[in-house]
Nucleic acid binder design. Structure first.
Lengths: 330, 330
DNA sequence: TTGTAGGCGTTATCAC
DNA sequence: GTGATAACGCCTACAA
């Protein structure tokens, strides 16, 4: 480039980075760019600026529509801002989680967005020595103060359960996630709190701790159906377990909502796929992704306003036909 | 590092890259690595070696389980080989498709895996001037000779249709993908060929060209139900359109398989979610991903055996209860 | 406004 | 086996 135009690399660098250059030179450089099909070498630039214009996204699994939808929107926001996204999937493997995080850092990402599983604050602290922005999505890491973008899981669960209660249901089966996962804890809290608020007794037998996988939704639904006094309604608290639950209900030919009322989670398409259409809790995946993306952009620009901010996004309870109103009946 | 150990950078470089170093030096460097928490700067290395140890994956959309499952397995294979993956989603936007491709190249990826949409050979040729390996998945780009890993769409569709035919169905509604997409063309060919092989007439009214989205599955299913002589069976040829079709069938309260037999596509979970369990064509997503990943690794290592190879992976027809056998009845 | 020179962290090529 | 030294392509003082 320098040779072609007869100018120095400094001038050209200025041109590239929008500095002041004589019009005549501007033109000739512009022409050279075309002719030589010049592209800045981001690698070389990164070496100098210590920025890669890339953020890493670390997620538990690429096969969950919840996660990928969020990631997709994060990616969209970053892309608009000239940033690339490296997506890493740690397959819900706590070992891999740390490994991949290091991998990401090794790629010199400028920031990192994590949906953590078993990561601990200490580990994180050690791995991320340089202070690049870290944003958690969906869950946070206890003891590691950083931005978090998540759904308001407690109230999501509260509302859904409340909906069942106000329709006259008293024995509500609750298929919860793992005890050590934050979202699951919150959803459980919602369930418990609404029972308290309505002065209803909790029957521990109705609470099943699954692992957010299809299998456990399937198995625990069956278990719920098999207990002595089976629940009149079942609430599954994530997408996969909702699928599992429906499978079990189908297999047993349990009529929804006549025999059991049901509320599921997460997938809006699911709602209409099943007969009858399912009432579900819908998480604002798009909003989570976009919020995380733009927050990351702000942090990247050095804006630390409100750090660490915990952003809780409202969920929506999509009402369809899977809940029977027995409030009048009772 | 050099300063700390008193050795030259050259020696250290050799150590890092596994060259011969005196045992004593080996130890002192090893110690320095620990103390200084040394990490190779991949950026600087990349600048020198012109390799980023990263491959780009360009996909139409992150929200399709078909795509993400494949990507997940690609990523797994690459990771095992020390390679990173940059995933780019072009949102089924032909404009973005080229943009993101350039973006990927800008990141100096060493190889690129593409699930193309509207990309043309010429464009590709222009964008990818340096000859990094390119592997297509699911579909290829006409006129651009490169490796392709895909499902055997023709036979997948042939078998599914044949299954319907041998069960006595003659009027089979076919919800096809866009005419200009290769997978759709192949699936259509399968449908046509089996009709030929069984000497059955084709009724054009039964073939609907959707766009692989839920909406079109929904609409065309309704259209099929509304024609004068509606089909006895419907075959939807991708995941999204299968969902749409089921929604339409549910909405109309059409009984499967009593009133209409049905075969769907792609999602194994779907099969059991719906009542009755659906017979579906299952694509070997894992295999596609792993094959593409390891093929990429081979190409990256300079092994050009069999280039360009077109790998067609067998699909499976998962038989459940959504097809009625009327062969005896007729 | 433009050019020169030095450096970012690494690898490659020589001598030694 | 080791150490200077020159790249890699870019950015940034600082000097002209």
């Amino acid at each position: 480039m320098a040779k072609y135009t007869g100018l120095s690399v400094a001038t050209i660098s200025k041109y590239i980075n929008g500095g002041n250059v004589l019009d005549s030179n501007r033109d000739s450089i512009g022409e050279a760019v075309k002719i030589l099909d010049y592209k800045v070498n981001e690698i070389a630039r990164g070496l100098k600026t210590r920025k890669s214009k890339t953020v890493g996204v670390l997620i538990p699994k690429l096969d969950s529509i919840f996660t990928t939808t969020i990631v997709s929107h994060i990616e969209g926001v970053l892309q608009e801002n000239g940033y690339g996204t490296i997506i890493c999937d740690y397959r819900r493997d706590p070992g891999l989680e740390a490994v991949k995080l290091e991998f990401l850092l090794g790629k010199s990402v400028d920031g990192i967005i994590i949906m953590p599983l078993a990561l601990e604050a200490e580990q994180l602290q050690k791995i991320i020595k340089n202070d690049i922005p870290v944003i958690f999505i969906d869950r946070s890491v206890k003891g590691f103060g950083s931005d978090v973008v998540m759904a308001d899981n407690l109230n999501a669960s509260y509302s859904a359960t409340e909906y069942l209660i106000t329709r006259g249901h008293r024995r509500i089966g609750f298929i919860c996630g793992p005890r050590d996962i934050h979202t699951a804890q919150e959803r459980l809290k919602g369930y418990l709190r609404v029972h308290g608020d309505y002065r209803l007794k909790i029957d521990e037998a109705l609470i099943k701790y699954g692992d957010y996988e299809i299998e456990s939704g399937y198995n625990y639904t069956k278990e719920l159906l098999d207990i002595l006094k089976p629940p009149a309604a079942i609430f599954a608290t994530n997408y996969e377990m909702t699928i599992g639950a429906i499978m079990a209900l189908n297999e047993r030919s349990v009529k929804i909502p006549d025999e059991v009322s049901f509320i599921g989670f997460d997938n809006i398409h699911l709602a209409d796929l099943v007969k009858p259409p399912l009432s579900i809790v819908v998480q604002p995946m798009r909003q989570i992704g976009e919020t995380a993306g733009s927050l990351m952009m702000r942090r990247l620009k050095g804006d630390r306003t409100g750090f660490p901010s915990i952003i809780r996004l409202k969920t929506e309870l999509l009402i369809k036909d899977s809940v029977r109103d027995i409030s009048g009946v009772v």
